[in-house]
Design a protein around this nucleic acid. Structure first.
Length: 485
RNA sequence: GUCCCCAUCGUCUAGCCUGGUCCAGGACACAGGCCUUUCACGCCUGCGACAGGGGUUCAAAUCCCCUUGGGGACGCCA
């Protein structure tokens, strides 16, 4: 697809809670689409539901969007500050006879709806008030304003992702534009906002697909140009159904979450999540890894699929692991600090380069920053116990000889230098273990880390430094001789 | 219930529009191997799908129809 002129898109969350993972994906698609075509990406906060909207949620959403690296082009628009605009449009429709006041009591309509549901038929407003002459409207009674659905309308609309979608009479209710308290309903405010903000492409979740016919008719009634629509497939949970905030506990066990913030807590890099989410439902040949600018160059709606995507934590982890390896040691070190703090380790005051060195040994071994922090603990805290199984296997009688020899080397050689350590070990392995490095390394690894799994021992030793190595060896030696220190 | 949408390996997908190059390609996961001081990383190999049935055609994953399965929407929520 070649570049489209005058693109302006928007992301329009309602601030009733944290940012939904499906929400960011919508935001990502919008933003990338705008960048791809040199257009604008705007943010609109849909806070007309005063009861449920909070400032805290607004802050959280903005924070999450920034974290993942999304940038919008103008000040965010708040619907709550645009009430007069909706009112103007409403009056215009009323005056032109394209909308009418409905005095039917809410309870009465609700009862009819329940009845329809019980009878298993589609509920539609019976248009009682449409039939009345507006001049005969009862004065002083509460009313809502309904859209007077025109008799003639297009039989379909063209969706940029889903293709041709029929407009079905069944769905064209005389829906409510404004509530009794005069506030606009969603379908009314979006249209007024998108039209007045001159949005060119409405890219949103597939769950809004059935609202589109209503909205198109409103654009036409208001004589605004109808934007292009693109309904993206939804993001589903592992069971294949729509993600539900209520099932968060269940998701947690599987390593996914509905909340964007949680992914930060789980130790994902923002660009990794962005990359993963962009690739969920969109593709560019066989490419999996995209830089930000590649995404901005290559993303387009014509390569977006039609079917819903299931969040796959293992693929996400793989993408994350990839970026952990790709990113520089110092950057990762900086990002790691808060995760270490969670474990009670204050690494910020360490000598410069210390944490970077640690990070460089852990990068190929961690899929998330949480995992990396956990694996870094032994560098900061000497083992307080030794894995019993490994003890049995590697600390057989005579093992103390090896520990003592290494201890001696640590005293006489420069163990802050990795290659010196390696040379010493190889020499010892030749002399004492028939060249089997493992026989020397494992007992030492156990002494130094408490387990038999760690980064390269040579790296570990050079990072720990001679002093600390001696301390840990002494402690292990004491343990071996039956006199734990 | 009504309406709408979707349908390629377990998952994300390429291919479908413009039928043949596809006994269907890549990635994640999984299994095995190599490398190796352990664990990883990396590399190699393997496993694994056109939902089913009818058409159309010399030829269908690709076009048409039906069935089945899945999802979404039916508010004075957004």
């Amino acid at each position: 697809m070649s570049a489209i002129e005058n693109v302006r898109v928007r992301f329009a969350p309602s601030p009733t809670g944290y940012l939904h993972i499906g929400g960011v994906r919508t935001a990502i698609f919008n933003c990338l689409f705008a960048r791809r075509h040199g257009g604008e990406f705007l943010l609109r906060i849909e806070d007309t539901d005063v009861e449920r909207s909070t400032q805290e949620a607004v802050d959280q959403i903005i924070d999450s969007l920034r974290w993942i690296g999304l940038d919008w082009d103008r000040e965010p628009v708040f619907q709550s500050k645009r009430l007069e605009i909706y009112q103007e449009h409403l009056e215009r429709l009323l005056k032109e006879g394209q909308a009418y006041r409905c005095y039917c009591p809410a309870e009465e309509l609700e009862a009819k709806r329940q009845k329809a549901i019980a009878a298993k038929v589609t509920y539609k407003y019976d248009r009682t008030c449409r039939k009345r002459d507006p001049d005969e409207d009862p004065a002083g009674r509460p009313f809502v304003v309904r859209f007077k659905t025109p008799e003639i309308y297009p039989d379909h609309y063209n969706d940029l992702i889903m293709g041709s979608i029929p407009i079905d009479e069944e769905k064209l209710d005389d829906w409510i534009l404004a509530r009794t308290d005069k506030t606009p309903t969603y379908n009314f405010s979006v249209v007024v906002d998108d039209a007045t903000m001159e949005i060119s492409h409405v890219i949103r979740g597939n769950d809004h697909k059935d609202n589109t016919p209503k909205q198109i008719l409103l654009y036409q009634a208001l004589e605004y140009p109808v934007p292009s629509f693109a309904h993206m497939p939804l993001t589903h949970g592992p069971d294949g159904s729509k993600l539900s905030k209520r099932r968060e506990q269940e998701y947690r066990k599987l390593g996914i979450s509905v909340s964007v913030q949680e992914y930060r807590k789980m130790g994902y890099l923002p660009h990794a999540l962005l990359n993963y989410l962009a690739r969920l439902g969109w593709s560019h040949g066989d490419q999996e890894i995209f830089t930000r600018s590649e995404l901005e160059q290559k993303f387009d709606l014509d390569a977006v699929g039609k079917s819903a995507g299931i969040l796959d934590p293992s693929k996400l982890k793989w993408v994350n692991a990839h970026y952990i390896k790709e990113t520089g040691d110092s950057e990762i070190a900086e990002l790691l600090v808060p995760y270490l703090a969670e474990l009670g380790i204050e690494a910020a005051a360490d000598p410069p380069g210390h944490l970077q060195n640690i990070v460089s040994t852990l990068k190929p071994r961690a899929e998330t920053l949480v995992e990396m922090a956990e694996k870094a603990v032994f560098y900061f805290k000497a083992p307080d116990s030794y894995d019993p199984k490994s003890r049995k296997k590697w600390w057989k009688p005579g093992a103390e000889v090896v520990l003592e020899k290494i201890r001696g080397m640590a005293e006489s050689l420069d163990f802050n230098d990795e290659s010196t350590v390696e040379t010493a070990f190889r020499k010892l392995a030749d002399e004492a273990a028939g060249g089997k490095l493992g026989k020397v390394a494992q007992p030492i690894r156990l002494a130094l880390t408490g387990t038999t799994v760690s980064p390269s021992l040579f790296e570990v030793i050079s990072i720990l430094g001679s002093e600390e190595v001696i301390r840990r060896l002494d402690r292990a030696l004491a343990e071996l001789s039956g006199n734990p220190a």
